[in-house]
Simulated scan of single mutants.
Amino acid sequence: MDHLRRFLPAFLFGFVVLVCTHAAFFIADKLGWHPDQQLGEFILGAPSMVSADWVRWTIAVVLSLCAWGAAHHFFYRRQQASDLPQSPNLADGLNVSDMRFTHQLIRSERHMEISMRVFNGTGRTVNFHSLSGQIKFSAPNSNDPSQMGILPPPTLRSDVANSVLPLKEWFLVLDQRVPSVEADKIVTLIESKIPVHMAFDGVNILITAAGIDGPERLPLWNGMSYSPEFGFGRIINASAHISLGLNARAG
């Protein structure tokens, strides 16, 4: 039934194109212009009624098939998009992966870019809403102020798309300004081959979509790490709540 529902509109559209093509040739003949005969003369080299009818039917059939194929593709894609299951909230259908930052320009330009790939499996078109918060960096298991800091709020790079269609990948890039003091700390860590941890718990990339009440936070990684030896990695923060109870019975 679903195939018939997609096929029938496309078939009717192709039939309409066939009828309109013949009507266009008929009107052209009445006005004294005979494009079918001219094409028959050009292709076959001998103008005749047979060649004109052959050209007319060939053009009509080719245009009808093209129109049917385009219409079938359009109706099929639209139906396919409408059949996608829609998650109740955006976080369940979005997958953030391959988070990285550029460190080559930190020393010279006091600037770096943070990139990530977001796959949209929500069944909806997802739109960028706003960006706020700050990124923290540190060396692993270190409380040394010379090995940690907080960066200014990042911004979305101007050429990044503001929305992503269902079943498509969204490449997000953040522009991050790095003050000189913090830049020197990061460069020193990298040159000393000490891993740099970037925490994103305080960064909020808000997104919206039709059918969702209010903006939601993009499910970013808790953080990422970089070391010259091992490259980039993901940091997952885990917490456990333990309750202790004491049962006593007097007797």
Rank of each mutant, 00 (worst) to 15 (best):
F232K: 03
A67Y: 01
F42C: 06
M112C: 10
G69S: 15
A10F: 04
F74L: 11
G223D: 03
W57H: 12
L31V: 11
V17T: 11
F26E: 10
R6H: 09
R217I: 09
H3V: 10
S158C: 08
H103P: 04
H3C: 11
P215M: 12
L39S: 04
M116Y: 01
M198P: 05
Q79Y: 15
K168L: 12
H197M: 10
D83V: 07
P179K: 02
L65G: 12
S243G: 14
I235F: 00
G133P: 06
L84N: 04
R249A: 14
V178N: 02
S130P: 09
V164T: 10
V17H: 00
G231E: 07
Q176P: 01
I186M: 05
R117D: 08
T125N: 09
V62P: 00
S48C: 07
V126P: 02
I114Q: 05
E169M: 15
P152F: 03
V19W: 06
R107S: 09
S142Y: 06
D83E: 14
A67L: 04
N162Y: 09
L84S: 05
G233W: 02
A248L: 15
D98S: 09
L218V: 06
R107G: 02
S108Y: 06
P47M: 13
L8S: 11
E113M: 09
G202R: 15
L31I: 11
C20E: 11
R177N: 15
S138N: 09
E216S: 05
E113L: 12
H241A: 12
Y76Q: 13
T208P: 02
I150H: 03
I212Q: 03
S243K: 15
F74Y: 14
N141V: 00
R217T: 14
H197S: 08
P152I: 06
G251K: 13
P166T: 03
A60Q: 02
Q80W: 10
S82R: 14
T125S: 11
E182P: 00
V16I: 14
N237W: 13
E113P: 00
S130T: 15
T125A: 10
G69P: 04
G233M: 03
L206I: 00
G223S: 01
P85R: 07
C66N: 08
I150S: 09
I235W: 05
V181N: 13
G251A: 15
A248S: 12
E191N: 12
G14L: 03
G251P: 12
T125M: 10
L105W: 11
L94Q: 06
H22R: 03
R78D: 05
